[in-house]
């Protein structure tokens, strides 16, 4: 019932958001007048050429950067407060697992810091390993796993403390196409099973269209949003949906949006 009451409440809301980095070459306008509302259960992709502020926006949500203007709320709180409430898990482009910890040990890292009991740590590790289909790999060390498996372990680590927002910054950018397809499918499954709100940065148009309920197209100098596309694709998405007409139409619109962003350089 509580969820139903909250359903209209936005999970992430940016209003007139600006972020200017002061650098030795002068100010860099990384985000300019960004307005965006992300609702509970959305799968939002951010796409755009490099330097358009995708990472900066995601980092702002995670309170790793602090906007210089406008407002940004996460679950109705400031990003800093939201962090204290364990509102989100963050997945970086590199898995960044500690080589001196086992996979289970790596997943326990946030749990130890957040003060979960031993028994609860073990129970959660087992659950999230299962969720990313790495059951049985808990005792392995990172070097014993492939790159794709390592990235899945890092997703498990972000899921372990039950944040209801998952922020992923080009999580599969360093992996090859085939592994990427598999992981995309798994992320969708994970999203369906957990109902989390997901923010996902990517460079790939098919990846963005395949995964998202909402596609945010961005363009650089200054970093801004040029188009927000609500996807009409159904929640159930087999890989071959990528050959459907709807899919191709959305992909076309994204491409147009990217091109428009470039035209006024």
């Amino acid at each position: 019932m509580k969820d139903n009451l909250n359903i209209s409440a936005p999970v992430i809301e940016a209003k007139g958001l600006n972020l200017v980095f002061q650098t030795s070459d002068g100010p860099v306008h990384a985000l300019k007048d960004v307005n965006l509302t992300i609702n509970k259960g959305d799968f939002v992709s951010f796409i755009g050429p490099s330097g358009c502020g995708k990472t900066t926006f995601l980092r702002s949500i995670a309170a790793l950067e602090h906007p210089t203007g406008g407002t940004l709320t996460v679950n109705g709180m400031s990003p800093d407060e939201a962090r204290r409430k364990r509102a989100y898990g963050y997945v970086f482009q590199a898995a960044g697992l500690y080589p001196w910890r086992t996979i289970a040990g790596n997943i326990k890292l946030p749990l130890e810091i957040m003060g979960f009991s031993r028994a609860e740590q073990d129970e959660r590790v087992a659950r999230v390993l299962d969720l990313v289909e790495l059951a049985g790999f808990g005792k392995k060390f990172p070097w014993q796993l492939s790159g794709g498996m390592q990235q899945r372990a890092s997703i498990a680590r972000a899921l372990a403390f039950d944040a209801d927002i998952l922020l992923m910054d080009e999580p599969f950018g360093a992996l090859d196409e085939i592994v990427r397809d598999r992981l995309n499918e798994e992320v969708l499954k994970l999203w369906a099973r957990t109902g989390k709100t997901i923010g996902f940065v990517t460079h790939s148009i098919p990846e963005a269209v395949y995964l998202s309920t909402k596609i945010v197209v961005m363009s650089p100098r200054p970093g801004r949003i040029t188009d927000v596309i609500d996807s009409p694709l159904p929640k159930e998405r087999p890989l071959d949906i990528r050959d459907s007409r709807e899919f191709i139409e959305i992909a076309h619109r994204v491409r147009e949006g990217l091109r428009a962003g470039h035209a006024d350089d």
């Binding site: 980092r59 962090r83 957040m114």
Partner: peptide, 21 residues
Amino acid sequence: QMQLDLLATYGASKRETFWKL
């Protein structure tokens, strides 16, 4: 920086960052 940012998202203290990372 990525490693440090990861710990920051967990709200880790300086002490925890020292011992764990």
